[in-house]
Every structure is written in C-alpha cells, then in structure tokens.
Amino acid sequence: MSVFAGPIQELVDELGRLPGIGPKSAQRIAFHILEVPKEEAVRLATAISGVKDRIRLCERCFNVGEAALCAVCSDSRRDSSIVCVVEDPRDIVAVERTREFHGTYHVLGGALNPIEGVGPDQLRVRDLLGRLEPEGVAEVIICTNPNLEGEATAMYLARLLGPLGTKVTRIASGLPVGGDLEYADELTLGRALVGRRQMAT
C-alpha cells in the first residue's frame, strides 16, 4: 500500500531505483524536491531528460559526447598516433585531469571478467583493431585498472596487438604521492621497484 499521494510515491519509487539510494534517502530527496521552487525542480528534470536526449557515444572512441565525434576526437591538436585504452568514459576524465596526455582515447566498456561472463567479445576490442591502420596508430597505452581484471585485459591486448607491429605500453604502477612507504603493500612496492627510473649516473 502506498503511504504518500500518487505523484510523491511515484517519485520516491523512481529515486529508490538509483544506485546507492535506499528508501529513506529516496523519501528525503522527494520531499526536498517538493519543497524547492518549481524552477529548480524543472531544471533537474530538464537536466535528466537532456542527458538522455543529447548525449551519445563517440563513433570513434566510444567516449560520451554531444556530436558524432567526442570533444577529444574532434580536436585537431590531439595526436591520433597515440591511443590510450581505458575501461570507462570516467577514466578519460581522470587521465585528462593530469594534463600529461595529448593523444586520443579508446573506451573498452569494461575489463575482462570471466566470472561475470565478460570476455573479449563483450568489449570494444574489434573497434580498437579497426582504428590502428586508418588512424596510423603507433602506440597503444593500456590504461586499465591495476587489478586482476585490468591486468588480464592488458595482457590480452598486448598479446593481440603485439604481432601487428603496434607499440603496446602499460601505465606504470607505484606509490601514490604523499603516501607512506610503510603502508605500501608488497605488490605495489614491488612494481614500483621494478619500474624505477634513473636519476643520475
């Protein structure tokens, strides 16, 4: 039996479907929306429908954008000979924040996870292969998460792309800036040692 009047209950139910929102939070947000001025509520509604109407996946890299090509792919200053392969469009934002990368991206749409039934066919691997020659890609940087699924994806891509003559690199693993060596786990510290760089002769 619904406790609230129809429209409120509808809103509570819809909000309750969102990730991380339980029934109590849904109720709190619904009542907040009820209390705010109408323009504010309409702005939220427009933003929600706008994202569904206007946002699409980039035809080339599968990043999110408003046009057929995303902002990165349509930028002529980007170096299309270097492609950074990420799992998710949100990872592009993380890499862009570094301001260190000036190439283009390719979003795989996940990582290999056999337990969840995600194999190479469920990822956009074929699309990546199709970009290599037409775009003259010289280097593929594999920027998947440093966990077992991400490493499996990286090794799979390296095995697939290596014989094609493309340079395949993997982002380095190491200690976070401001971190404490004492708390570093052995795998991360081990990789940081293997990937050390020379500072003086």
């Binding site: 290999l112 056999p114 337990i115 969840e116 039934g117 995600v118 194999g119 190479p120 066919d121 799979y156 095995r159 697939l160």
Partner: peptide, 11 residues
C-alpha cells in the same frame, strides 16, 4: 561455470 566458458575465447 561462466569463467570456464568465457575463458575459452581468449587467444
């Protein structure tokens, strides 16, 4: 066993 079947598609 999903992993037993998914893994077989790896090269």
């Amino acid at each position: 066993l999903r992993s037993a079947h998914t893994s077989s598609s790896l090269p």
